[in-house]
Computed example of a mutant assay.
Amino acid sequence: MKLQGTVPLETGRLVLRRFLPGDAPAVFHGWAGREDCCRYLPWEPCAALQETQVRLENWLGRYAEPDFLQWAVTLRESGTLAGVVNLHGVDEAHCCAETSYALSPAYRGAGLMPEALGAVLRFGFAQAGFNRICAEVLAGNAASVRVLEKCGFRREGILRRRYRKDGCFADAWLYAVLSSEFSDQSK
């Protein structure tokens, strides 16, 4: 594997870059502090901007690590921060990782997240050398399933009662795409 950390990535409409210290308000108001955006995430929304700032400072401190892969999804034309996409849980011995993402509701429905995730997958398979990238989706999150399926992921199974959310246990669906499958998808 050739892990080089979070490097800039570009698509037709997007620039994926490292987060900056001044991004905290956009992260908080865009998704991290929003109940509607965190409904299908395993963590609760940030209660205050300060909580988001602490989370962001953690990310900034980890950018020196070659296996920390966390991108701010920005609109190419305006530079507006629209979301986040990452590769985490990197397992170099087995050449695999997990992905997760979030997008501000203002930018949903325009195909931006499949575009961003596609760029991250191309990077992950072609440059970093991953063989497998997976994702866990809380049961019922149809929008996330559509993003994954557009990018070539296949549902592999159910992780029963995987997460505790709102005092109840929730199932998660396991999806994955292999390097060989993604290559076939992108032709």
Score class of each variant (00 low, 15 high):
142 A>H: 08
61 G>Y: 07
83 G>F: 01
127 Q>A: 15
48 A>I: 03
106 A>S: 10
172 A>N: 04
121 L>G: 02
105 P>Q: 07
92 E>S: 15
60 L>V: 06
17 R>S: 11
68 F>A: 07
12 G>L: 11
128 A>I: 08
139 A>S: 14
113 M>W: 02
114 P>I: 13
165 K>I: 07
170 A>P: 00
157 G>R: 04
32 A>M: 06
185 Q>C: 15
124 G>R: 02
153 F>Y: 06
107 Y>L: 12
107 Y>H: 13
18 R>D: 09
139 A>D: 11
138 L>A: 06
43 W>D: 05
88 H>A: 10
14 L>D: 02
187 K>Q: 14
70 Q>V: 12
18 R>P: 03
133 I>S: 01
156 E>F: 02
130 F>P: 00
104 S>T: 05
2 K>T: 14
131 N>F: 06
13 R>E: 12
103 L>I: 04
102 A>L: 04
50 Q>D: 15
100 S>I: 00
30 G>T: 08
109 G>S: 10
160 R>E: 10
86 N>D: 15
175 Y>C: 01
173 W>E: 15
61 G>N: 10
150 K>F: 08
136 E>V: 01
155 R>P: 00
159 L>H: 09
23 D>E: 04
59 W>G: 08
96 C>G: 05
168 C>E: 15
125 F>P: 00
183 S>Q: 15
186 S>F: 11
91 D>E: 12
107 Y>I: 05
46 C>R: 07
179 S>M: 13
126 A>C: 10
174 L>I: 07
82 A>D: 03
28 F>W: 10
148 L>R: 01
170 A>T: 08
161 R>P: 03
55 R>P: 00
110 A>Q: 15
9 L>W: 09
156 E>I: 00
166 D>H: 13
158 I>T: 14
147 V>Y: 01
20 L>N: 11
182 F>D: 01
35 E>D: 13
94 H>K: 11
70 Q>D: 12
11 T>A: 11
65 E>W: 10
57 E>N: 13
87 L>S: 00
106 A>W: 12
160 R>W: 06
100 S>Y: 03
142 A>Q: 15
176 A>C: 05
101 Y>H: 02
153 F>Q: 01
58 N>A: 11
185 Q>I: 15
174 L>Y: 03
51 E>A: 11
91 D>F: 05
157 G>T: 07
120 V>A: 04
97 A>H: 01
162 R>W: 13
164 R>C: 14
75 L>I: 10
112 L>S: 08
73 V>D: 01
36 D>Y: 06
179 S>Q: 14
5 G>E: 10
92 E>L: 15
